Computed example of a mutant assay.
Amino acid sequence: MLVLTFMVGEFLYGFEAVNVAEVVPPVNCKPLPKAPGFVSGVFNYRGRISPVIDLPRLALDKPSVSMMSSRIIMIDIADINEECERGSRYLGLRAEKVTDMVKLSDDLFESPGVDIPDAPWLGRVAKMERGMLQLINPAKLLDEDLQRILFPEDGHQVTEREVEELHYPEKNMGD
């Protein structure tokens, strides 16, 4: 399998190349007031308004650092939500040190041995010279609530409560 590798903080992660639509240089995103902190904003990707998620902020609660090797990895939403038409919507994922595409045998990957409910998108792990490489599963990157906020269906208005629940999930537990 071909894997696009990148860093989140000091750790190595990757996407299977089959799940990557394109890798683009970093851009200034239009911020979305009151959006969850890991949402960088939106930008014009090939004529379509596309949201961007800051992967280091999502994973480690630390904003990404701008560097020469920072990139936005574009994912087709059809790889996240099978009800979406391929090529109709994209999600950008801001990452650091997006520099390598490596070919690895599927046999090198194994289960990490833990299941983290708040990070269901974390996938299998491979041991490499540079350290451990963990795959990210794009199909589990956005839960239904976040999909509805970032990609509202025509006519669906996202409620203030939905945004608040993403912003402050502990505040709304037990409601």
Rank of each mutant, 00 (worst) to 15 (best):
A95W: 03
S64V: 14
E129M: 13
S69I: 06
V42H: 13
R71S: 10
R89A: 10
K127C: 06
I116L: 11
K62V: 15
N137C: 00
L104W: 07
V98H: 00
E82Q: 07
T99I: 13
A139Q: 09
A139K: 05
K97M: 12
V98C: 09
I77T: 11
P152A: 01
A119Q: 11
E96Y: 07
P120A: 04
T99W: 04
P56S: 07
D118P: 03
D61S: 15
L60Q: 03
P112S: 06
L108C: 13
E129H: 09
V98Q: 01
K103D: 08
G123Y: 00
G87S: 05
K127V: 10
R86D: 02
D106Q: 10
C84I: 03
L93V: 05
P117H: 07
P63I: 08
G113F: 00
M74I: 15
D76V: 05
P120F: 02
K103F: 15
R89L: 06
M132A: 08
M67V: 14
P112V: 00
V39S: 13
E85A: 07
L91F: 03
S88P: 02
Q147G: 01
D145S: 09
A126M: 01
S69D: 04
F151I: 09
D61M: 12
D115W: 13
E129G: 02
G41E: 14
D100E: 10
V125A: 00
L104C: 04
G47D: 07
L122Q: 00
I77E: 12
K103M: 14
L60W: 06
L150V: 04
A119E: 06
R86L: 03
R148T: 08
M132R: 03
D76F: 07
M101C: 13
I49L: 15
I49F: 12
R89Y: 05
K127D: 05
R130V: 05
P138M: 13
K103W: 10
P138Y: 05
D115S: 13
I80E: 03
K34Q: 11
E144C: 09
A95Y: 04
P63E: 14
I73P: 06
A78K: 12
A119W: 04
I53Y: 03
K127M: 10
I75M: 11
R71H: 10
A78T: 08
I73E: 01
D79A: 04
M68C: 08
